[in-house]
Design a protein around this nucleic acid. Sequence first.
DNA 1: CGATCAATTACCCATTTGGGGTATTTCGGT
DNA 2: ACCGAAATACCCCAAATGGGTAATTGATCG
Lengths: 209, 209
Amino acid sequence: MSEQTIKVAIVEDDREILQSLVAIIDGSPGFVCRQYYSSCEAALDALCSAPPNLVLMDIGLPGMSGIEGVRRLKERQPTLDCVMLTIQDDDDSVFQSICAGATGYLMKNTPPSQLLQAIEDVYKGGSSISAAIARKVIGSFQQTAPSPLSTREAEILGLLCDGDNYRMIAEKLFVSGNTVRAHIKNIYKKLHVNSRAQAVRVALRDRLV
Amino acid sequence: MSEQTIKVAIVEDDREILQSLVAIIDGSPGFVCRQYYSSCEAALDALCSAPPNLVLMDIGLPGMSGIEGVRRLKERQPTLDCVMLTIQDDDDSVFQSICAGATGYLMKNTPPSQLLQAIEDVYKGGSSISAAIARKVIGSFQQTAPSPLSTREAEILGLLCDGDNYRMIAEKLFVSGNTVRAHIKNIYKKLHVNSRAQAVRVALRDRLV
DNA sequence: CGATCAATTACCCATTTGGGGTATTTCGGT
DNA sequence: ACCGAAATACCCCAAATGGGTAATTGATCG
């Protein structure tokens, strides 16, 4: 079962790179590349009517970018895995790709053995991202600045995010509504906001809850 | 420079696993393990006064869990990299660990060669997470359900998240405040909420903006 | 061609919110 | 012993919000 051939499609505008990729894939047992395109426009319909197991997508394509390509592709084929192939690894490209639906993100200079390993990982339900990119993704989960809020304030902010109003919060914390108001005023001052909506946004963004 | 010895500390309560880990690390050129502990309580002070390059931390420890251990450790030594070592890979443990500050997350059955590779990756500023775990982390960035909102509603929800009130939204969109109110009522219905705070929370959670 | 829905406008009214104050108690640090 | 931060509690009042109802226009879909 693990020896099933993995059908890979490639979208890449550089003819040389495309050919060398096809050669690597097609020349390796267990992998086959029968679909390759030089633009998203050319690839989209074909990939939707005859979906491969996995798509290697260049980011820097002329016309529609690989990121937009993935977005369109995933709209029509949500189960199709896409791995970005790129020269730049700037944060923006990484996160945009991931949000667009990419399952992996590889540098173009990845050695063939790792490339094949990555394809196999994705095929098996994993995700192929390099150590450096994984760190960036993980870093986005971790809060850097320490919370400026007191314990009580953080508690109240949490209830604020749940949509509770003064009265509900007061009841849950066994204090008066006036006290809740006083705390919320302090929270707003500390977060430099002046409405619930903004407070919730900051709270979620900075993981204060 | 790449041949510098990496000092690894281990926190693991199972004596056998601990010994085999120490043997692997210490027996490999370029790696050394001089600090090993069977509980977070025992490790914390020692690791802060004589920080290694990297800590391998078991999650299922008696007493303080490895996740809490990482949290405390990172409070005092924010630059110290921690890699979780665990038998379970349930979503909760993964995300809790990452949010607590872990840089990597490995299964205990990871073969020695990959373990050493992972340690080296982290030491070089990367992040060692297995393909399966990377997929979970990446998946958390990707919206699954299509947005139930119309273009206009999504637009207004975005401004709502910015903290704009009716009047400000109305001015930005060149419509009346009453229209904005009507849209917001529809948004609330579709998102099953009844306040701005809840709407913002859902919008950010489901990436509707 | 009728049905439906998105977008738009409008109004009423009770409740909630936010900004401005003031004050007491408790607790940890200097 | 004193100070400041945190937590508690209260006042007034203008503005914003949320729920209800209703009507018009345009586009899209059977």
